[in-house]
Amino acid sequence: MEWIGVLIVNKKDSRVLLEIKNLYKKYGETTVLDNINLSISKGEVIVILGPSGCGKSTLLRCLNGLEKIQGGDIIFRDKSLVNGDVNWQEVRQQIGMVFQNYELFPHMTVIENIILGPVKVQKRDKKEVMEQARQLLDRVGLLDRENSYPRQLSGGQKQRVAIVRALCMNPEIMLFDEVTAALDPEMVREVLDVMLGLAKQGMTMIVVTHELSFARAVADRIVFIDKGRICEITEPREFFTKPKTERARHFLNRFQY
């Protein structure tokens, strides 16, 4: 059950951690997300699929306040992230995010990248954070790179560090925004393995990806979005074998040669 002392969670707690209600998002006049409803339980792994530009990434970004929404509500741990005073600094400590282009801080070493948040934001003891950071790095096989700068790492390594950086904040939930899309095929695996390990240890995750076989392996539920709307929410086996909507069938067919 234990994954480097970060997460000790019972899988499928069924307690709702995050709930999205009637979410609307517009860029100017264009509606990007249209009436999104989704609830995520503790320990659940949700994979969001859909064609490019359908709003998947935007949805993730709404969840940690990088995008403003124009309607609806997001409830995280029984508190609205839309109405009333939202302390985003606090919320973001509990919602970890990993980006497509890693976005490590290039002027800091690997270990400095990782401990910045825990030490400066969470005001935790530096020694204790360093210890946790090293354990996490060890877990992703990068302990020997702690003093490297990001430019000295490969894409896959950078992304693993980025995952560790988010994990070291001890978040309740992790958002993955196409984290393997910028990687060479041979590096995709090492990143997906880390994510699979996390999922198995009960981390609540929302994953946007184009890696269909990974989605099938890791997801508890697949959310298929097209043109800003949720078309289906199903178990992975069902989604990949007999998708309910024509749109999803079409989407899946395009991945088959």
């Binding site: 990088l66 973001r92 400590q93 970890g96 995010m97 980006f99």
Partner: peptide
Amino acid sequence: QIESGLSIGL
């Protein structure tokens, strides 16, 4: 980069 900083709660 700014978003990355925000995402860890800075």
